[in-house]
Structures are given as structure tokens and as C-alpha cells.
């Protein structure tokens, strides 16, 4: 009897998905759907929060008042995105606290791009342009994802991300229009961030263990390789326009496909960084754990105060 009901529910659920009706928090959903979403949304939330660190690294050294203000605003937006996304995971029945503990213990990952260091001011441009650009490719697709709260959070996030990408590209443009030293700085950032940006879309479709099921549930609407190709196609002309070279000797326009062909990604590097051996994995997690530990007494004080004055 029970299994039958479950089957019926599952059928109804998939029918809704197929009809593009959003799944809402109180709707029945398969356990695996819930778990997949919790994993994906919390990874996304953590990426926003950890992503604050490499950019935050340059706020105190930003070269002008305007750049400092814009960067502050951008990093603040990311904290806001983290907040919506943690709220979206809460609608699936997990607390923010537990979700954050999973980040700190290494159980849940974040985008591996944030394990690369920001070494010069140009890296702030490269991150805005390429990293946020890659994120937008993913996120625009997620505005139509099947889970309602996630889709709605993405709509708001996408608006801000496209502003972030423009400011990153504007930094790069300014540098490329500047002195020799500035152009070198920009090209160096490009050289370091191009390949990790391509890796942001995740393993190729053949290797991706979650893609097929996620596509069926319409959590994902495009495969990793499709999104990666769109990103390359969009970025190459932007780079050319301002005189930046793409660090890929195999990059070539393919007339027949109507896309750019590009060289092989170093997946060994990707798995090394995902596995914890990137240049800044340790520092990123340490910074988050430190913020949590040092903030413990503050949170306790706020709770104690609220308890005393509850009435």
C-alpha cells in the first residue's frame, strides 16, 4: 500500500516537473530530489560566502575611492546572495548552522575557483568579468529551475551578477587602456583565471555523475559542456575587443559548428583543487572557521539578550 502511494506521488511529482510547474517547500518531493537540491543550493551559498574572501582581499588596497566603494558593494551583494541561498536551503528542512558546519568540515564543497589567490588588482577585474561571467551562465539557467524558492532567489541574484560582470570587464578595459604595467597586470590575471573559469562549469558531461538525473528533474536545464561552450563563445570576442589574449593555443573559431573550439582542460588540476590541494583551500576554510569561532560569544550574547527581553 505504502509503496503504491509513493509511486503515485512520484508520478505526480514528475508530471508537475514535466509541465514546468514549480515545486514548493510543502509539496511532496522524492528524498533524492531534496538531497540533490540541498547539496546544490548549499554549495552555491558557500561559494558566495567563500567567494567574498579573494575579493575582500583587495578592498583595503583598492586604487581609488570609486573602486573601493564598488568593490565593497559587490562583496556585500555576495553576502546577500549567501543569505537568500541559505534561506532557500532552510525551506528544505536544514538549518543554516548545520549547513555551515558541513562547509567547515569539508563535507560540502564550494566553487573551486575561490581557492585561487588574488595577487594583483587586475585579479579583481578578472574575477568580476570571467568568474561572475561563468556564474551567470549557470545562474540564468537556474532562474527556471524546478524548485520555486531556488528559482526566485536566482532571479534576484542574476540581476546583481550582471552588474558585477560589467564592473569586472570595466576594470579590465581601463587597465588595457592604461600603461604598459597595467596591460601586463591585466594579461597576467587573464592567464591565471581563464582555465579555472572554464573549470567552474564542472566535469565534462561524460564524467558528471549528477547531470542526467538533475536534467530529468529540471534542476539543471543545460549540461556542463553546453554552458562552458556558451561561456567561451561569449568571452572570446570580449577579450579581443580590449586586446587581451586567451591563453589557449588551440582556441579557434569553428565555422561548421558555429562555436569556438578550445584546448583540453587540465582535469587533474581541477580534481586536485576540489580535493583540497589548491593554492588557498586551507586559508579559505580557516578564515570561515575563525569568523565563526570568534563570533560565537557575539551570537550567544544576542541570544541571551533576546531571551531576557522576550515578552
Amino acid at each position: 500500500m505504502e509503496t503504491l502511494t509513493q509511486e503515485k506521488l512520484a508520478e505526480k511529482f514528475q508530471a508537475k516537473i514535466d509541465a514546468d510547474i514549480k515545486i514548493e517547500p510543502n509539496d511532496w518531493m522524492p528524498d533524492t530530489y531534496r538531497k540533490t537540491l540541498i547539496r546544490q543550493i548549499s554549495q552555491h551559498a558557500h561559494s558566495e560566502i567563500v567567494g567574498m574572501l579573494p575579493e575582500g582581499n583587495w578592498i583595503t588596497r583598492a586604487p581609488s575611492l570609486r573602486r573601493k566603494a564598488v568593490l565593497l558593494a559587490k562583496v556585500q551583494d555576495e553576502a546577500g546572495h549567501g543569505l537568500y541561498l541559505y534561506s532557500a536551503t532552510e525551506t528544505l528542512g536544514v538549518s543554516r548552522e548545520d549547513t555551515i558546519d558541513d562547509l567547515h568540515s569539508g563535507k560540502v564543497k564550494y566553487s573551486s575557483i575561490f581557492n585561487y589567490p588574488t595577487l594583483t588588482w587586475a585579479d579583481i577585474g578578472a574575477i568580476g568579468w570571467l568568474v561572475d561571467g561563468a556564474a551567470i551562465m549557470n545562474q540564468v539557467a537556474l532562474c527556471r529551475t524546478s524548485y520555486g524558492p531556488y528559482a526566485r532567489a536566482m532571479v534576484k541574484i542574476c540581476k546583481e551578477e550582471s552588474f558585477h560582470q560589467r564592473q569586472g570587464y570595466e576594470i579590465m578595459t581601463t587597465l588595457m587602456n592604461g600603461t604598459e604595467a597595467q596591460r601586463e597586470m591585466a594579461q597576467d590575471a587573464m592567464n591565471r583565471f581563464w582555465w579555472p573559469s572554464l573549470m567552474m562549469f564542472g566535469p565534462s558531461d561524460a564524467e558528471s555523475k549528477h547531470t542526467e538525473q538533475s536534467m530529468r528533474w529540471r534542476i539543471k536545464r543545460h549540461t556542463n559542456d553546453e554552458l562552458r561552450q556558451s561561456f567561451v563563445d561569449a568571452s572570446v570576442p570580449q577579450a579581443e575587443l580590449i586586446g587581451l589574449k586567451i591563453p589557449d593555443p588551440n582556441l579557434k573559431w569553428n565555422e561548421a559548428r558555429g562555436h569556438y573550439d578550445f584546448g583540453a582542460i587540465d582535469w587533474e588540476e581541477f580534481w586536485q583543487v576540489v580535493g583540497g590541494n589548491g593554492p588557498c583551500n586551507k586559508e579559505r576554510i580557516e578564515a570561515r572557521v575563525k569568523a565563526k569561532e570568534e563570533g560565537e560569544w557575539v551570537r550567544e550574547a544576542a541570544m541571551a539578550y533576546a531571551k531576557k527581553h522576550k515578552s
Binding site: M52, Q76, A79, A291, V298
Partner: peptide, 20 residues
Amino acid sequence: AELCGHGPILEEDIALTNIS
């Protein structure tokens, strides 16, 4: 601005950055 990304609670991270 030094505190951006290091606040004791996410909401405070946002508030302090906003004041900055």
C-alpha cells in the same frame, strides 16, 4: 572594510560592510 567577509554573523558582515 577590513572586516568584510569576516563578520561574526552573515547579517553583521553585511551591516558593517554597508556602514563602511
